[in-house]
Simulated scan of single mutants.
Amino acid sequence: MSKALKLSAGNKVGMIACSDGVRVENLPKVEELIRILNAFGLEVVVANTLYRRDSYFSGNPKDRATELNRLFKNDEIRAIFDISGGDSANQILEYIDYDNIRLHPKPFFGMSDLSVILNALYTQSNSKSYHYQLMNLVSSDGSEQQEAFYRTFFEGQNDLYDFQYHWIRGNHMSGIVIGGNIRCLMKLAGTSYFPDPSNKILFLESLSGRANKIVSLFAQLQQVKYFDKCAGLILGSFTELESYNEFSIVEEYVKDISRIPIVKTNEIGHGSNSRFIIIGENITLYKYN
């Protein structure tokens, strides 16, 4: 696997909310996060669309896309961190300047509902994006995450890049990673932003959903012929599903509807100790004896 983004003291990074705006009551956590990034030597450029204004949104879809485009166009900014989540990210897809992003590429970080943007950036701009929530740095595992973040992005180590996994089927898979949160990825079905799965490795995870909901989403993926074309499947953490000990139901269903190699990891998803996976990155996984 290739090394991740390299940061150094003095670099600028952007912070934005492209999905639901950050709640004002979370201001202390965001301020703490900015202090941590400043302590790393980073200068944080905060978008005008970060906190909620009216109801759920930090701005209308055009406003949020304009701020994202501005951060991408600023060549002084090394990476963009989206710290939002919810249900609103797909509203901005048609307003993103993908040609500009192709000319001014930089890593974009986000997860959950931001899966729609991670995959749109790949399909429209051939960009690589990190499925990762920066708020992990101020979570219950914050100290460990801060250390891992610094080692990964400042010292070039693989702390947040490498993840443990076990094989459900097969012993080898290789390809470009697509996917993210399964519920949010399916918002892209039928659009030009939905990635072509041919010879790709599909990564899927979820916060909510018990077995009936998750199985229904896998059925939809089967019906759009995703599993007929993929080179492999990485199953991340399925938080609610696994809290009810129902993962085996989904595992059996997926094995029944597909014939592709499958691995399971508990280290990528909504957990506060999660690592990242890069959408648009070519990875290879082996079974070691």
Rank of each mutant, 00 (worst) to 15 (best):
G280V: 05
L137F: 07
E240C: 10
N48K: 15
K255V: 06
R210H: 04
I234Y: 00
E267M: 11
V22M: 06
F109L: 05
Y244H: 14
N26Y: 04
E155W: 02
S237L: 12
V116D: 04
H270I: 09
D75G: 05
A120F: 05
S140A: 15
R259M: 13
Y161E: 11
Y56F: 13
L241G: 02
W167F: 07
K6Y: 15
D196L: 11
I178R: 07
S55H: 14
E205Q: 14
G269W: 05
D256C: 10
K29M: 11
K287E: 13
M186R: 15
N100Q: 13
A47W: 02
G236L: 03
Q145G: 08
K225S: 15
E281Y: 03
R53Q: 03
D159I: 07
V215M: 13
I260H: 05
I83K: 01
I257S: 10
F227H: 08
D159S: 13
Y226Q: 06
K62E: 14
R259A: 14
D54T: 13
M135T: 14
L37R: 04
F153C: 08
A79L: 08
K264M: 07
S19C: 08
V116Q: 03
G59F: 04
L188S: 12
E147C: 13
Q164D: 12
N212S: 11
N26K: 10
L202A: 08
L202M: 11
T239M: 10
Y95S: 10
I214D: 02
V30C: 02
T49I: 00
E242T: 06
F153V: 09
I117C: 06
K6V: 14
G271V: 02
I83C: 04
Y165K: 10
D162F: 10
I260L: 13
L217H: 12
K187D: 14
Y286Q: 10
A189W: 12
I214E: 00
S19G: 05
Y98S: 03
Q220M: 14
G85D: 08
P261Y: 07
R183C: 04
H166Y: 09
K62L: 14
A120N: 05
Y165S: 11
R78C: 01
V24T: 11
N136T: 04
V45W: 03
D99Y: 03
M1P: 04
M111F: 03
N119D: 11
R259C: 12
D99L: 08
R275F: 01
A17S: 05
V30H: 01
L202D: 01
G10N: 00
E155R: 15
R151S: 11
N289G: 13
L93M: 15
S198I: 09
A231N: 09
D97P: 06
V263T: 06
I279H: 08
G21D: 00
H104A: 03
A79I: 03
H104E: 00
H166M: 07
E94G: 10
F72P: 02
E147Q: 15
S129C: 10
S258A: 09
G179N: 08
Q124W: 01
S237I: 06
L68T: 00
F227M: 10
I283K: 10
I176E: 11
I83T: 04
E205C: 15
K200Y: 00
V250K: 04
S192R: 15
T123V: 07
